[in-house]
């Protein structure tokens, strides 16, 4: 009997966030949100960072698409703690969020896994 068959080992996280326990999707991803942040640079320039994209996506490819789509420059930064982070020039929070949740041309991620920070 493999471990897959044992019902007891099916993961249920009793410590999952209480308020968004809407089903299976919340369970698995409660810990790893995708954070979209904004930082101010000098003048009215800003920087958007996307942190915590699922490992199954190739960050470089995503970046390439995003850069083309939003007409901005960007880069992938490897951070020691946060892993790979996409940096984009300008305030792309709304765009990135739409892109990540878009089912047709985006990644089709769940809206609940994305957290947008900033003002």
């Amino acid at each position: 009997m493999s471990t897959q068959d044992i019902q007891n080992l099916k993961t249920f996280d009793p410590f999952a966030e209480a308020d968004d326990a809407t089903g299976d999707s919340a369970k698995a991803q409660s810990q790893n949100y995708i954070h979209i942040r904004i930082q101010q640079r000098n003048g009215r320039k800003t920087l958007t960072t996307v942190q915590g994209l699922p490992k199954k996506f190739d960050q470089k490819k995503i970046l390439k698409v995003i850069k083309k789509k939003f007409a901005c420059n960007g880069t992938v930064v490897a951070d020691s703690e946060m892993g790979e982070v996409i940096q984009l020039q300008g305030d792309q929070r709304k765009d990135v969020q739409d892109f990540l949740t878009d089912k047709k041309e985006g990644l089709g991620l769940d809206q609940k896994t994305i957290k947008v920070h900033g003002f």
Binding site: D19, H35, Q39, N42, V77, D79, M82
Partner: peptide, 16 residues
Amino acid sequence: RRSVTAIKTGFSAQVG
């Protein structure tokens, strides 16, 4: 009574 997440700064890019 509920627990709240600790405030995390997250990644901050090198600015300036």
